[in-house]
Structures are given as C-alpha cells and as structure tokens.
Amino acid sequence: MPDVTHHPALAHQFDSLAQQSEATTLGMWVFLVTEVLFFGGLFATYAIYRGWYPDAFAAASHELDVTLGAINTAVLITSSLTMALAVHAAQLGQRKALMVFLAVTMILGAAFLGIKSVEYYHKFVEHHIPGPSFQFEIRISPNDGGNPPGKLADVELLKAHVQIFFSLYFVMTGLHAVHMVIGIGIMLVMLWLAWRGTITDEYYSPIEISGLYWHFVDIVWIFLFPLLYLIGRHAH
C-alpha cells in the first residue's frame, strides 16, 4: 500500500479504512451474538420456571412498579433515538451535534439507572430481595376454605416460587444494568474521541459500533419489561 493514502486512524494490519470498518463492525455483530446467548441462558431459565409456576410469577410480577418500568422503557427508547442521531451526525462530520447527542444519550442512560436504583431501593425496603430476610405477602382470593396450619405452609411454598421470580428479576435486570454502565463508559470514550477530533466523516466506525451495542442493550430491556413487569397485569 502506498503511503499517500495512509489515514492516521488506519491500523497497521489493515489495507484500507473500509476493510477496517467492515472488520470492526463484524466483530461487534459477533460479540452481540455472544451476548444474545449470554442472556439466552437466563431467558431459557425464566421460560422454564414461568411454565412451572405461573401463579407465583404473576403474583410476584404484580409487585413490580409498572409506572417506573414504563418510564424507564420510554427513557431507553429515546436514548436509542439520540444514539441513532449521534451516528448520523458522525457520518456527516458534524462534531458539535455528535457531542451533544452522545451527551444526551449518556444522560438518558444515567436517568435509567437512577430510576432502576429507586426501584431496587423499594424492593429492599419491602424485603423482596431473595434470601433469609425475604418477605412476601400473598393476597389470595378469599374463595378457599379455611385450614389454618396448612394455609401457612401452602403460602411458604408459593413464597419459594415467588423468590425464584425475584432471583431472576434481580439477576436479569442487574446484568442489564451492568451492560448499561459499560455502555455509558463507552459513550464517555466516544465523547472524548469526538472532542479530540478523531471522529471524522471518513472515520466514524467507533461511533457506529458503539451504537450497535447501545441498541442491543435497549432491545434486551424491551424483552425484559413485558416478561417481568406485565405478566401479572391480566391476572387481577
């Protein structure tokens, strides 16, 4: 390769920026496939237990705060929009717009995490964190005949299954939140690259692949929200 076309961002192992961008984009797609299987193990576990204990899952789901969940969904969808706008700005080489959109995306991501931690705090106060201190009040419809000692034990069993729901809830949303934190970190790096002027209309693939990641994390939430928050809705 003659040296005249050598772009400062072109890594030594590539022949052209196009090849480099194709390679990094493919790399991110392959990584996302890995991520799909990573969450896939959890979704499979969720599907099996929900199939076994539909009532416990519905009762537990009822305890989640749908309003906060819905707000968070809206926040994330908006952040996906601003992310897409950031990629668009990068392609056009609009550095200022790029930086603004990246910053807005980060703020929305942080807002999501803030709301999520409020929800976690509520669960903590209500003792809905699985483990020895777990407490859960079952609101059973009053059509059953009384049988005091047994009723207590029956509730214990349901409580165990409710705990499985909450275990899955915390692991799934927790892992999603970890992905959000990483995403915000990536946005911070992108903001720095944009501020430094590394990102140009010739070389914007870092923004593009960060966008892929961000959208993926949003999509995971789009699945989590109905599966965790909404399954209890039709039951009552």
Binding site: D144, N147, G150, L152, D154, E156
Partner: peptide, 22 residues
Amino acid sequence: ILNPSARVTAGFQPIMPTFQGL
C-alpha cells in the same frame, strides 16, 4: 402431599395444605 394445589382432582377445591417440611 407436598404441593397439593399444583394438580387438583376435578370436583374438589384446592384447600389441602402442603406438608412440605412436615
């Protein structure tokens, strides 16, 4: 015996307590 309400025979109420742990 352990999880009576899981599969209740037709015509009966799910009133039997569990004997899990007992």
